[in-house]
Amino acid sequence: MRNALGLDRPPHVRYFEWLGGVFQGDLGRSWITNRPVSATILERLPRTIELCLAGFLFSVAIGLPLGIVAALKRKTKTDYTAMGIALFGVSIPNFWLGIMLIFIFGVWLGWGPATGGYGGPEYLILPALVLGTALSGTTSRLTRSAMLDVLSQDYIRAARAKGLRERTVVYTHALKNAAIPIATLLFMRLPWIFGGAIVIEMVFDWPGMGLAMINAIHTSDFLVIQGIALMFVVLVIIANMLADISYAYLNPRIRYGMRR
């Protein structure tokens, strides 16, 4: 048994063997189920991505309008209320919010699957909402500061001096400029959603990579932990690339270069 698992060789030798396998798409096998780690990941990665994307959309759907309104009504009751909500959003532990929502909707009102799990949209909506809430606080804060930054620019004043309608000034000129930092920062924060997803998958029994990782940690299934951690590193790199791409795409200075 020890021989088959390779436990008789020193750890660093095993690590480099594993690393060599990684480049050939071989992440090793779980010593509990004997299933290839790559198979587990391939099965679970799409579910985690599905959850993260839905959560990301929720965070933008909640956070973006909140931040815009706060910026437009700067230093008024509306602004303070919106930012209070945002601060509340970042202060709630999302796993607790998940449990409470399970109780309210699943148990008390009996509207959805209380035990969680994986399936149709009724399984996705609560975990995605919870995942999105935490990030929406951050989203609305950075939207607000990006909008405030842009709204004080000279070209906004110039747009008003042209006699443009206020909604054109805000939603065409200000928002399109603010979109550059907002999109970049949002994509840079995307990895935080992956972190949140681990916890949320556990709360809602969502069979993604996070749940697999927690189970692996509890059973000391090291190759599974290693493989999933590696997968998260890849996701982080992709998120950073998305941030760079969105920056270049939204900013004409990069898109068209300097012609002078």
């Binding site: 620019q153 000279d154 070209y155 004043r157 110039a158 747009a159 008003r160 001096a161 042209k162 006699g163 443009l164 309608r165 206020e166 000129h173 399109k176 400029n177 550059i180 939204l250 900013n251 004409p252 200075r253």
Partner: peptide, 22 residues
């Protein structure tokens, strides 16, 4: 708003920042 840009207009100090970059 309808007066601005039609009957009265304004030009600004800094051309670098007064045109929308996007």
């Amino acid at each position: 708003r309808k007066v601005r840009g039609t009957e009265i207009s304004m030009i600004f100090q800094d051309p670098e920042t007064s045109l929308d970059p996007v």
